[in-house]
Design a binder for these strands. Sequence first.
DNA 1: TTGAAAGCGCTAACAG
DNA 2: CTGTTAGCGCTTTCAA
Lengths: 329, 329
Amino acid sequence: MKKNVTISDVAEQAGVSKTTVSRYLNGRFGNMSKETKERIKEVIAEMNYRPSKQAQALKSKRSYLIGIVVADISNMYSSLLLKGIGEVLGKAGYQMIIMDAANSIEQERELLDRLIDQSVEGVILQALSRDAHHYDHLKKANIPLVLVDRDVEPSIFPLVTTDNVTATKKIAEEILSKNYEQVVVVSEPLKDVITRELRYEAVKEVVIAAKRKLTLIEATAETNLSERISELIASPLKTALFASNGRVLMELLTILVNEQVPIPEDIGITGYDDWNLSALVGPGITSIEQQTKVIGEEAANTMLECLKAGAYPVETKTIPAIIQLRKSL
Amino acid sequence: MKKNVTISDVAEQAGVSKTTVSRYLNGRFGNMSKETKERIKEVIAEMNYRPSKQAQALKSKRSYLIGIVVADISNMYSSLLLKGIGEVLGKAGYQMIIMDAANSIEQERELLDRLIDQSVEGVILQALSRDAHHYDHLKKANIPLVLVDRDVEPSIFPLVTTDNVTATKKIAEEILSKNYEQVVVVSEPLKDVITRELRYEAVKEVVIAAKRKLTLIEATAETNLSERISELIASPLKTALFASNGRVLMELLTILVNEQVPIPEDIGITGYDDWNLSALVGPGITSIEQQTKVIGEEAANTMLECLKAGAYPVETKTIPAIIQLRKSL
DNA sequence: TTGAAAGCGCTAACAG
DNA sequence: CTGTTAGCGCTTTCAA
């Protein structure tokens, strides 16, 4: 077990002081002699020296660590989000500490505390609570917070999110243009997450304005979706399902495929597709694709700005979604 | 900008020394008076004190950080893997620093170096190189390395992976039992990744033993898969496609669905499905599902063992895959 | 039962 | 152009 070489070792070997080496490391060769510079460079290469980020951080108050907390890492949304964030942050010399709240608000709280302990310089969060006060301690600790996907109330943090309202209204109009008499929104419980509410309200506005029937199914683990769908198919009204997120869409499709329900003949279906795979299913599913990677990139950029400015630009960046028109309506 | 409270602040406030507070923090109240203990507890709560991991790490040589490097974070495989790793590591009090090599071997190298700089205690890696020497510097730096998904040559690190050979042979036999005359393996270039080779060899063994025709398509971005498939369909031989990973499977399915090729009438298809979504596609795709989350958990457990033992158990843990028999063959 | 003091590996005044 | 010195926030002998 060979011990690590430190700045002192390098200094000694090069016959200079730690200060000089430190200056070299930080590119502050204001007027350092060519020779010392060369000498240090050689010694560093020779000894295979790498400065300890820990020590640097402790002293300089810069950890170059950004904490990322996602709601559920096994969701495809997270993958693409992390990809985008990682690319931007990596280029800027930052590292990500990624954590998975696993949809538990208590766990999220715990994770945020741990991130603070690690002296992260900022946090990018897909919030589980919609209550801004829940995140007060970050503000108190003076750690910049950038929200992705979901806003909190009141909106006191910068946010990067899909343009939910526009996209949802567009697809609602698409539904109506196909003369559906009833639109059934299937969503996880509305009250937990603002985004869900936003999407529901958007559909509602369009459908109500057109005087068609609107139904809401708030699905939980207990909901027997299969049964509800059978009922809808049995009803005389020409019906379209709107899945308010990727998970729900996949669940609905699984049911329809399993029961071999003809799409769109017996029932229409559309919604948000995080997996971007709905082209493959059935006749091709008309759906809304979010530009998740772009959201990640923008969130990272926002973070970088906060860090540079030392201030909070409390603005919302809205990323347009892409409507994929296929044959399920 | 209120400055952080440090151990000194707590000590002062509680009227004891830093040592005592430190002892309290580390649960070393060998024989500390009930009162001091109480007092410190109160003050910590009151001042909202949280010890700095940075400083602790610097002094105690324990960072509780584990580096994870995945080949491509936008792959579904990564999501589930990270989920598994995160659960186990989190419970054990470790944090993950996750990095995305984005399929670049140079970037992977760079990332590993950065992880060393961060003083991670161990690294879990989905290796991009199959040459063990590529990872010598980790061994030199005395950082435990656990491989997932892909082995290197020679096998000098602990590895957690799907039981590729067994699963692949089983599905190859499934193909043969349906009287296909030709099996076409579609894979990304074999030589880059051992796993790909393993899977190909497994199919080969079974198909050759049964004296059926075996064809290999090594697909790159330039390959016109669509054309190749048309040719296969046109051929008089009854043909089954075997996709050697999830990405290839999805690509093949996209082509088949777009061109409305009847499955399995005109061509059979099966393979590895990282997305676990093949139930939804076409008639339902017979496929191999890896227990990716379990692989992550096992990898994390292996890492924990290495850390505890301070030694390398160079063993391979093999996780069985699940064969989903559906209707695409 | 507790404290003083040294030091982890690094940076940054301040002085030459 | 370079070195001395004093910490960053913590842990750990050693001594009381």
